[in-house]
Nucleic acid binder design. Structure first.
Length: 959
DNA sequence: TGGTACTCTGGGCTT
DNA sequence: CAGAGTACCA
């Protein structure tokens, strides 16, 4: 990483072993790359070499990475080297996203419904919890989930182990298997694949239909030590035509064993591919010698480890620190004081951007965040709560998922009562149970709504329509009175994100798989499913790259999310037994590697620390992590002296210029402590002193700690100022999407679904209102409604045709969910079971309020329940001479379409080359601070998102 | 009494 | 932020 990037020649700046790895003519190449050895650069160069020198077509190369971030970075780098945009043809992404692409294109070959959705973690968990409850299984759902995932991740090509283990059938095992079966059944009926399924099914596909990958010349895998069994299978399957594989990895950095990563995959590869050329990259370009040596001392405690060394190219540097503090709060305060000292003593050669605080568990950030906040230091949080996991965003996503897949009971269940509709958990659970036992989707039970006609619509419009029909802003205001502005801003950011996604889709075009003769590909036309897939697969770990124009920020990150990154200054707090190694960990070696990874992120200054007590008033003690206790004497017990000599060495490692002494010392405020002496080195000895958990004990009770203002932070950044949000979380960092393709509109059917869903929501709301106002006895709950179907004053017309197949010509007959499902599936399925058809759910009384989404259209002809039908899938072209249908036909160039509708013709790729009207700035309400005009969408995505200012009127938008 | 809404607490890393 | 437990409503 520290090496200069090659511009002209890919060989520039490569050392000998790197060059050997890049240009190896062996079919299989295993590159063992220690931390900071330039592995990404090497892999990138090899890809370029394969294309430019060997002559493979970009579209015949698969590059699989482990994280979205790595994929993005790799693509960028390859793009820079190739310089002509060919990198977009490379099949490059995470294993999961590549698998998804293949399944979307060829899934039907193995009987997969192409409209499959992706079950994320919470989905899986919820499903399994319900199964366990329903079947009264004794197993712990979390355990069951892990067990199932492991089973899937194992892969199929391990006959030796698999065969051996089976025979023992404990009752517990049986329960697990039952759970597994039920779980798969549920996923299938919801047309969902979980993360593991993506890999498993893709492997199945490639095994049965090798032709899909017959074009593949070479397969390259990054972070190979993190691959699990199924990914190993997948790698081989991708390469089955020519068996050319390049892997890069470092067994010492394998930290995903809990996710079934198998270090053994390396030996497996070497065994299976005898002619593999092995190349070790041992030169470390990142860290000072001291840091490397101590890191090695940690990792070498693992006796089973494959021995390899790290050769420093940099100077010795300063001794890493192992600091003991009295409490977590003191630890946080000490970190801050040390950050200040470093910045001041470097004359701002080092800024906040150069500092990372790497934590074992996300919740450890609490103390640190609040201390940073109090000190007025801005920071970004990586790997914490993700954007898509925020409640308000999740809700919208769940709505979108229901729109895409009405049969997704889980998503539906989560939104049924959000915004509040007076439907409680019990009811929802009841519905789910019923659905599960009867195998029928909840949607069918509760939905029969008036949907307007088939009006195509863009992704953004769908979301906006949802927002307005749900009155989402008000919902936020009532449910989260304190921070609804922030949440609403998040929602708007989400809208902007969706818009950017659509735009990028148009701009970048094609990430589709290369055509292969003889096999037909399903083209992904709809935006919505891909948007959702992106959301599900995006982890959005944010890199430490400094955003130029925003102010310098300290990075707080989990160690896992920090892999592959580096910082001049690294703090690793909470290095105590129970945190590292984590108390719940079952693999102590992996915990050690985790610490090793954390330590090797540091270039110049490395600080470990731990609080000797879990909190200020606790009386039990934390024990120092066993990983460092035996070598604790190799650490310094407090921060190094940062004199000119030391700083110069640091400057050399970082390749920076150190300001003059005059400058540095001139900027020091009076009373500034140039040493790390504000906190006692042995905190337990001052226990008798009055310790308030905050201040400085070392210089006597209540001694005033000299406060320093960070340079460049203006003058008095005093600690008394009201705390205000001055940090970024990963999520706020707009995600960068990996997959893009094709036209900017979702299909008519999806749109249809949108409206239906929105209407369902509105309907449910009305129900609630009615329930509250009328308090009809039968309607205590939605349950009564659903179960009995009794409803006040059902319009006869509605009842009459409910569940009946309407004549095709009557597009405006009523819709019931079976018909709706057919529409969504776009293929005739015999979904209407006779008993269901006769099962009449009471239509709702139509309120006076206009139907969602068709205020501008009169197609409903004033009928209260205009579109209640179970008509078969409608052909793409409308058949009835209704005004709206015309619009749906071919008027792409017409004047502004009636908002918010959009012509169905937009489905055609050719019509989507222009930015759709309606996606213009008027639609985007970007939160303040997010760059607007001058930046390209992609760049924009990289900009941190700044929250709205508090005073901004919360109701700027629509209601 | 059945059902919904509210308060509290406790956390493992992530595709 | 979810799950459990409690308070409040018909």
């Amino acid at each position: 990483m520290a090496q200069p990037a090659p511009n002209n020649s890919i060989f520039d700046g490569l050392n000998e072993s790197q060059r050997r790895a890049v240009t190896s003519a062996a079919d299989t190449v295993a590159i063992l790359a220690g931390p900071g050895s330039g592995k990404t650069q090497t892999l990138t160069a090899r890809v370029v070499w394969l294309i430019d020198h060997v002559g493979y077509h970009p579209q015949d190369i698969v590059v699989a990475t482990f994280t979205v971030k790595a994929a993005r970075e790799m693509k960028e780098r390859i793009g820079k080297s190739l310089g002509d945009g060919r990198e977009t043809k490379i099949i490059l992404g995470t294993f999961h996203s590549i698998a998804r692409r293949y399944l979307a294109a060829y899934g039907r070959l193995i009987g997969l419904n192409e409209k499959f959705g992706i079950a994320d973690d919470s989905d899986s968990r919820a499903i399994i919890v319900r199964i366990c409850k329903r079947l009264q299984l004794q197993v712990d759902p979390a355990h069951a989930r892990a067990w199932i995932s492991k089973k899937k991740a194992k892969g199929t090509e391990m006959p030796s182990r698999v065969v051996k283990k089976e025979p023992k059938k404990t009752p517990q095992l049986e329960e697990l298997e039952t759970c597994y079966r039920e779980y798969q059944k549920h996923l299938e009926s919801s047309n969902l694949l979980d993360y593991d399924d993506l890999l498993v099914r893709c492997a199945e596909l490639l095994r049965k239909f090798p032709a899909c990958v017959s074009n593949i010349q070479a397969v390259l895998v990054d972070e190979y030590q993190d691959t699990n069994g199924i990914q190993y299978d997948l790698m081989k399957l991708f390469a089955q035509q020519h068996r050319r594989i390049t892997i890069v990895g470092d067994p010492d950095q394998s930290i995903y064993g809990w996710r079934s990563a198998e270090i053994g995959n390396l030996w497996k590869l070497l065994r299976e591919f005898r002619a593999t050329e092995e190349v070790s990259l041992e030169q470390n370009y990142r860290s000072s010698e001291f840091i490397l040596n101590l890191s090695l001392q940690v990792i070498e405690q693992d006796t089973k480890r494959y021995k390899k060394s790290l050769k420093p190219v940099h100077n010795k540097g300063t001794r890493p620190v192992l600091r003991r503090l009295i409490s977590p709060d003191a630890e946080a305060d000490w970190i801050i004081s040390e950050i200040r000292r470093i910045i001041m003593m470097s004359g701002s050669m080092i800024t906040h951007n150069d500092v990372a605080i790497l934590i074992r568990s996300a919740y450890l950030s609490r103390h640190i965040e609040s201390s940073l906040g109090k000190a007025g230091i801005s920071y970004r949080m990586v790997g914490g709560l993700k954007f898509y996991e925020r409640a308000e965003i999740k809700t919208i996503i769940d709505y979108l998922r229901v729109i895409h897949q009405p049969e997704n009971n889980d998503a539906l269940a989560r939104i049924l009562n959000v915004p509040r509709r007076g439907v409680g958990d019990i009811t929802i659970r009841g519905l789910l149970e019923e659905a599960e036992t009867s195998g029928m989707s909840v949607w069918r039970r509760i939905s029969q709504v008036d949907g307007p006609n088939d009006t195509p619509i863009g992704l953004v419009q769908i979301i906006e329509q949802l927002l307005s029909s749900l009155d989402f802003q008000r919902h936020l205001q009532t449910v989260h009175p304190e921070d609804h502005e922030q949440r609403w801003a998040n929602v708007q950011e989400f809208v902007a994100l969706a818009g950017d996604f659509v735009k990028e889709l148009e701009l970048k075009g094609d990430e589709s798989l290369p055509e292969i003769e003889g096999i037909e590909q399903a083209k992904e036309v709809d935006v919505l499913p891909r948007f959702l897939a992106n959301v599900a697969l995006a982890t959005d770990a944010q890199t430490g790259d400094d955003d130029q124009d925003s102010k310098p920020r300290v990075t707080i990150s989990t160690i896992h999310a920090a892999k592959g990154l580096e910082w001049p200054v690294v703090f690793v707090p909470a290095v105590y037994d129970g945190s590292i190694p984590h108390s719940r960990s079952d693999d102590i070696d992996e915990e050690r590697r985790l610490l090793y990874v954390a330590m090797t992120r540091a270039q110049s200054l490395l600080y470990l620390s731990y609080p000797v007590r879990p909190s200020s008033e606790a009386n039990q003690n934390n024990e120092m992590s066993p990983f460092v206790s035996s070598i604790s004497r190799s650490f310094a017990e407090k921060g190094p002296c940062l004199d000119r000599h030391v700083m110069k060495e640091i400057a050399k490692v970082l390749g920076r210029e150190l300001p003059s002494d005059e400058k540095i010392f001139g900027a020091l405020p009076p009373g500034f402590s140039t040493e790390d002496n504000l906190f006692p080195v042995d905190p337990e000895h001052v226990r008798g002193l009055q310790w308030d958990g905050q201040g400085d004990v070392f210089n006597g009770p209540r001694a005033k700690r000299p406060r320093i203002h960070g340079p460049g932070m203006g003058k008095a950044a005093e600690e008394e100022r009201p705390w205000q949000k001055d940090y970024l979380t990963t999520m706020e960092q707009a995600s960068k999407f990996t997959i893009s393709n094709l036209p900017g509109f979702i299909s008519a059917s999806a749109h249809q679904a949108a409206l239906v869903a929105a209407n369902a929501a509105a309907e449910a709301k009305r129900k609630e209102e009615r329930a509250q106002k009328l308090r009809l006895p039968q309607q205590k709950s939605i349950m009564a409604f659903v179960k009995t179907g009794s409803e006040p004053a059902p319009p006869p017309a509605a009842l009459a045709s409910a569940g009946q197949t309407a004549p095709a010509g009557n597009a405006f007959s009523k819709k019931s969910s079976p018909g709706f499902q057919q529409l969504v599936a776009k293929q005739p399925q015999p979904v209407i079971q006779p008993d269901l058809a006769s099962h009449k759910l009471g239509p709702k009384k139509m309120p006076t309020r206009p139907t969602v989404g068709h205020s501008t259209n009169d197609g409903s002809k004033g009928k209260a329940y205009p579109c209640f039908s179970s008509s078969p899938p409608r052909p793409d072209s409308e058949q009835n001479g209704n005004g709206i249908s015309e619009a749906a036909d071919d008027d792409e160039d017409d004047g502004p379409p009636p908002q918010p509708t959009r012509a169905a013709a937009c489905l055609h790729a050719t019509t989507c080359t222009t930015v759709p009207k309606g996606l213009g700035s008027s639609v985007f309400r970007r939160p303040a601070g997010l760059g607007r005009d001058s930046i390209t969408p992609i760049e924009k995505l990289k900009k941190p998102f700044k929250p709205l200012t508090i005073n901004k009127p919360g109701r700027g938008g629509k209601m």
